[in-house]
């Protein structure tokens, strides 16, 4: 039999305002209880998907965007509520489903079996609507809590890998990415570019115009670096005013062009800050790794750093390539 949808005939899971935690699956073979549950839940602004047997419920609950809360009648012909609980809990993947098992009041010994089978809570027939509301609310609350926890976890994970001011990768994350890309480069021989960039005289900017202006400069520099590269290149904050970009699959000429583009994007347009327009320049050290290179990521980093040092020594606002030093370190000079 087909699952009966909510009264408007829409699929509530996909409707615009719906969130998965406020859609409820109701599985009951009895038309009276289906009607009570559906009417009440809809009155309380839940979206309802109602089915009349366990097989349909099982089908729906396996879908990736299935309702997170399900009210399952224990006694249904075929697949019953208890078996549904067991099957759901045996699934390894997927979001947590909150299962409310409905049983007859005079089968109270069932409750223990129901909870053991994986039900989160139970409701005894004949339940009154206040009890129903309380049970569903506590289920929703737990799901919302779980949702919040999940999001907090994701936020923490993001924060652990990103720079608080600029939102780009932080030092540890960009170094991990560099290490990963160097290893990949060794496996597949694809060229790999590394850019190390440092804002010239940044300390002077901070001292003269204050830290808020300094922060604005950093944000704008990052924005221009990111815009000058491709979406799949990695940009991280390596130090206070020092940035590291990892550019996979880019040959030496293109890498040079990118570095030059970045340099020019900073030097040619002053940056608007609360302390006025500031003319800023950027020095860059570039390493281009071609096929058959054997350098580990630390030597690469070292080479980029040395190139950047040369760019500073040679007058700033310029790009230096690490080729000679690189070759020398590898014993190829």
């Amino acid at each position: 039999m087909n699952p009966t949808q909510n009264s408007e005939g829409k699929d509530p899971v996909r409707s615009e305002k719906s969130t998965l935690t406020d859609t409820v699956l109701v599985a009951d073979d009895d038309p009276i209880f289906r009607h009570v549950l559906q009417s009440c839940l809809e009155k309380w602004n839940y979206r309802v998907v109602a089915v009349e047997n366990g097989e349909d419920a099982w089908k729906i609950l396996q879908e990736p965007d299935a309702p997170h809360l399900a009210i399952l009648d224990w006694m249904m012909p075929g697949l019953d509520g208890l078996e549904l609980c067991r099957k759901l809990r045996h699934r390894k993947e997927g979001t947590y489903r909150y299962l409310l098992l409905v049983t007859a009041k005079d089968n109270i010994q069932d409750i223990v079996a129901g909870l053991e089978a994986g039900a989160d809570d139970y409701l005894t027939k004949p339940f009154d609507v206040d009890e129903l509301r309380a049970r569903v609310r506590s289920g929703t609350r737990i799901l919302q809590l779980q949702d919040a926890l999940l999001r907090a976890h994701e936020k923490l994970q993001f924060e652990a890998a990103h720079d608080g001011l600029t939102g780009i990768w932080n030092r540890r994350a960009i170094l991990d990415l560099l290490k990963r890309e160097v290893e990949r480069h060794h496996r597949n021989g694809q060229p790999l570019g590394i850019l190390m960039a440092d804002v010239d005289h940044f300390k002077r900017i901070n001292d003269t115009y204050g830290h808020p202006a300094g922060d604005t400069v950093l944000l704008e520099v990052v924005s221009r670096i990111v815009k000058s590269l491709r979406q799949y290149d990695f940009v991280g904050r390596y130090g206070g005013e020092e940035f590291l970009a990892v550019v996979p699959g880019c040959d030496a000429a293109n890498l040079m062009a990118s570095a030059e583009r970045i340099r020019a994007s900073i030097a040619t347009h002053p940056i608007d800050t609360d302390a006025g327009q500031l003319s800023i320049t950027l020095s860059l050290g570039v390493v281009s790794m071609q096929a058959n290179s054997v350098f580990d990521y630390e030597s690469v980093l070292h080479a980029a750093d040395a190139a950047l040092y040369r760019a500073k020594a040679n007058g700033r606002d310029r790009v230096e390539v690490a080729n000679s030093l690189f070759a020398a370190r590898a014993g190829l000079a």
């Binding site: 073979d29 009895d30 009276i32 209880f33 009570v36 006694m75 012909p77 007859a104 009041k105 027939k125 004949p126």
Partner: peptide, 15 residues
Amino acid sequence: QQAAHSLKGELSYLS
């Protein structure tokens, strides 16, 4: 058992 169970559920709900 099954038919009486269904009836019992509905009847008890309607008091």
